[in-house]
Simulated assay, not measured.
Amino acid sequence: MTLNISLVLLLGIVLVVLIRGGTLKAGPAIVSVLFGFFLASTSMAPDINRFVSGVTTVIGQIQF
């Protein structure tokens, strides 16, 4: 059985859990989101996308 979930959705859920658990305050969370948003518009975005795609491919090939 395979489970497909958007990485954005997964990271959003983790962010909400961290904020609600008190591990991460709202201010740093907003700064992190804005950093990611602006980082996506830089020339580094394709390299980051390739890296994340490679990592998720490797994780997807792991057999339990």
Rank of each mutant, 00 (worst) to 15 (best):
F64Y: 10
L24Y: 00
N49D: 15
A45M: 10
L24E: 00
I13H: 02
R50H: 12
L15V: 02
T56D: 13
G54R: 06
F38S: 09
F38E: 06
N49E: 15
L24S: 02
G22D: 01
T23Y: 08
A29L: 01
M44A: 14
L9T: 05
V52M: 14
S53L: 11
V55I: 15
P28G: 09
S32T: 10
M1H: 12
G36C: 08
V16Y: 04
F37K: 01
V16K: 04
G22P: 00
S6G: 07
L10E: 05
F51W: 11
L24D: 00
A26V: 14
L3F: 07
L11E: 05
T42A: 03
F64P: 11
I59R: 05
V52L: 15
M44C: 06
I5Q: 13
N4F: 08
G54M: 06
L7M: 12
L34Q: 02
G21N: 03
T42V: 00
F37P: 00
L24T: 00
T56R: 10
V55N: 03
V8L: 11
Q61P: 03
F38M: 13
L39N: 03
L11S: 07
G27I: 14
G54A: 09
A40N: 03
M44E: 07
L34S: 06
S32F: 09
N4M: 09
I13T: 05
I59Q: 06
D47K: 13
I5H: 10
V31C: 08
V14N: 03
S41A: 12
F35T: 12
T57N: 15
I48E: 09
F37N: 02
T23R: 12
F51N: 05
F35I: 15
V31R: 04
S6F: 01
G22H: 01
G22L: 01
K25F: 08
I5W: 10
M1N: 11
V33Q: 06
V55K: 05
F64Q: 10
M1R: 11
R20N: 10
S6Y: 01
G60L: 07
G22T: 02
V58D: 08
P28D: 05
L9W: 04
L9R: 04
G12D: 04
F35G: 11
